[in-house]
């Protein structure tokens, strides 16, 4: 177990808003700021577009962590989308943690289009903290297929 955690490379799903955080990620690339390759980016129009269901689905399908990132308060391309998102995410995060999901499986950040370096910093922090938590188990859907059956149907 300890060894598993040591070599553990978490899979993190990052929902990035098109106008700020996604552009921030782009800028991180242009500026050659390094960050861990653990994030799988999903571009969304606005952090307000992220339904709590998406976050839960990511966790259920085996994501070790989920990050949602949008524009700073006051900077939303749609004026107020991230304000609604903030209320929604506060409720979701508190509920999941109240039910006993590890703190830090689901994280949120504000990253603007000008903050390439900050984006790389956020990803480093999120990756580190999820790594510390170890592989996600609690919310992951079991998809047990007996090994011999998996082998049997794999052969052409």
């Amino acid at each position: 177990m300890a060894e598993e955690v040591e070599n553990f490379e978490p899979k993190i799903v990052a929902f990035l808003c098109n106008w700020c955080s996604y552009a921030g990620a782009d800028l991180a690339g242009i500026g050659r700021y390094q960050y861990p390759p653990n994030v799988r980016v999903i571009r969304v129009p606005c952090s307000g577009r992220v339904d709590p269901l998406y976050i839960l689905k990511a966790l259920q399908n085996g994501a070790d962590g989920v990050l949602v990132s949008g524009c700073h308060p006051g900077d939303c391309h749609y004026i107020e989308g991230n304000y609604y998102a903030r209320r929604k995410f506060a409720v979701l995060k508190n509920l999941l943690e109240a039910l006993g999901l590890e703190e830090g499986r689901v994280q949120f950040s504000w990253v603007s289009a000008a903050e390439g370096e900050r984006f790389s910093q956020v990803i480093r922090e999120v990756t580190e903290s999820v790594k510390k938590l170890g592989p996600a188990r609690r919310m992951v859907k079991s998809f047990e297929i007996p090994k011999e059956i998996e082998k049997e149907i794999a052969e052409a």
Partner: peptide, 8 residues
């Protein structure tokens, strides 16, 4: 000025 502490 809603609760914002949980966001990086």
């Amino acid at each position: 000025d809603d609760y914002n502490d949980f966001i990086k």
